[in-house]
Computed example of a mutant assay.
Amino acid sequence: MPLPLRPRLLAGALLFLTPLAHPAQAQTPSQPELKQVARFDHQVTGVTVSKDGRIFVNFPRWTEDTEVSVAELKDGKLTPFPDTEWNAWRNAKKDQVSANSHWVCVQSVVADPKGDLWVLDPAAPAMGAVVQGGPKLVEIDLKTNKPGRIIAFDEQVAPQGSYLNDVRFSPDGKTAYLTDSGAMGALVVVDLDSGRAKRVLDGDPSTQPDKSVTVNYDGKPLRRPDGRGVEFAADGLALSKDGETLYWQAIKGRTLYSIPTSDLTGWMTSAVVPSALGDQGLSRKVEAVGENGPADGLIISRGTGRMYVTSPQDNAIKVRDLGAKGSELKTLIQDERLRWPDTFGEGPDGTIYVTTSHIQDSAFYKPDAPAALPTELWSFKPAP
């Protein structure tokens, strides 16, 4: 039976849907208007919008054991999704609640081309140890709001030290592509029909943090109290509109990489998942597309075909015309309110949504910061 919704949960998750005025940040004529859609009392990362306009967000358990990990933004409030029972996992209850059938530490929510919602759970609270049986990709039928397929990942796909980060789906709905931004970066390819998954480019330079890059914020290197900097590996992920090219990059990196998806999916026709995909040969298929600088979220718009890039160091959203000669990166929006722009989602009308996760303000980097970190959801409408 679903657990009763605690009154203080909704009281602490009230959202402001009216765009807030901010006179200090006047928009330039060429800059799309940035609108605040919602403000949260907890640290948000992922956002997605379904084909019928429903908005979903997720809250990873990084610096707090938050009561809700996945929610629908509905009627101005956060409604636990698909219900309170799936959100019932807590550190204190980890021996009483199944990690396979509850959200442990959700990092990403993505609506697929068919209109269903997929939830990616790396099951590594505080980006620490992976909870046994927790890493999974879960499909939810948005017609019934009921979970369907649960694709569990074993230690071959999600070993200790991993942190599955983002996911994209092929246009035919048969393949999922994931990034792993953990201690050993990699990509993961999932055959959705069979549920089989394969970890690829594990340890390849294209999926690793770039040692020559230092992520800065507020004019200085962003470091933890013990001196560690930002070390996230392969993170942002995007798929071309035709599904033929996959793009990714590390946050602690500057280079955007790509590979033909046909080079990642050949093993699916085999009855047995190979123990290796010949990563040395696969590495030679990887191409450097261009330099983004340190970046977090990526998305290729269904409407414009452009790639949008979040640039945390610059409080900015940038755009890359992939079909243009030289694939030049340009700043689209720069606004001090975009404090660590994180993840993109696209609405059916072409509106782009982006979360600001305030990572630089979190207890990881500021020990006196509150465990419950206020964050926001923004939107803008790109020009045609």
Rank of each mutant, 00 (worst) to 15 (best):
R8N: 08
D314Y: 06
P382Y: 10
Y308N: 08
F40E: 06
A176S: 07
R224F: 09
N145R: 13
D166H: 14
P80R: 05
L298S: 06
L17I: 12
V189F: 08
G182S: 01
C105P: 00
D166P: 05
P209R: 05
Y365C: 02
L9F: 15
G305R: 06
W248F: 09
P274N: 11
D75A: 15
L201D: 05
L373Y: 01
S206K: 06
V319I: 12
G236H: 14
M127C: 02
Q249G: 13
L222Y: 08
G323R: 13
T310K: 08
I333K: 00
A152R: 14
M184N: 11
Y308D: 13
L142Q: 07
S30G: 13
P348I: 07
Q280T: 15
K35L: 08
V138H: 06
D41K: 12
P4T: 12
W378Y: 13
R6N: 08
P260W: 09
P23R: 10
G53H: 15
L14F: 13
E85S: 12
T84G: 00
I259Y: 02
I333F: 01
V200S: 07
V309E: 00
A88K: 14
A371C: 04
K174Y: 07
E346Y: 07
A152W: 04
P125T: 04
F16V: 12
P29E: 14
K252A: 09
R90A: 05
D204E: 10
D226T: 04
P122W: 00
V319Q: 02
L332C: 02
V273Q: 12
T63M: 02
A111R: 02
Q43E: 12
G219W: 09
G195D: 14
S108P: 03
A316P: 04
K285V: 10
W118E: 01
R337G: 01
A129N: 07
P221H: 11
T179R: 03
T179G: 05
A38K: 06
T79K: 14
I359W: 06
P82T: 05
A13L: 07
R90F: 13
A38Y: 08
A271C: 09
L322D: 06
K241N: 14
K51M: 15
K174A: 14
A371E: 11
T331C: 04
S357E: 04
H102Q: 05
D180E: 00
E67N: 12
D321T: 11
E376G: 03
L277C: 11
S258F: 08
G182H: 01
V97N: 01
K220F: 07
S170Y: 09
S283T: 11
D83V: 09
L20K: 06
W267G: 10
P205S: 12
G76N: 02
T356V: 04
W248D: 04
I352T: 04
R39G: 10
A324F: 07
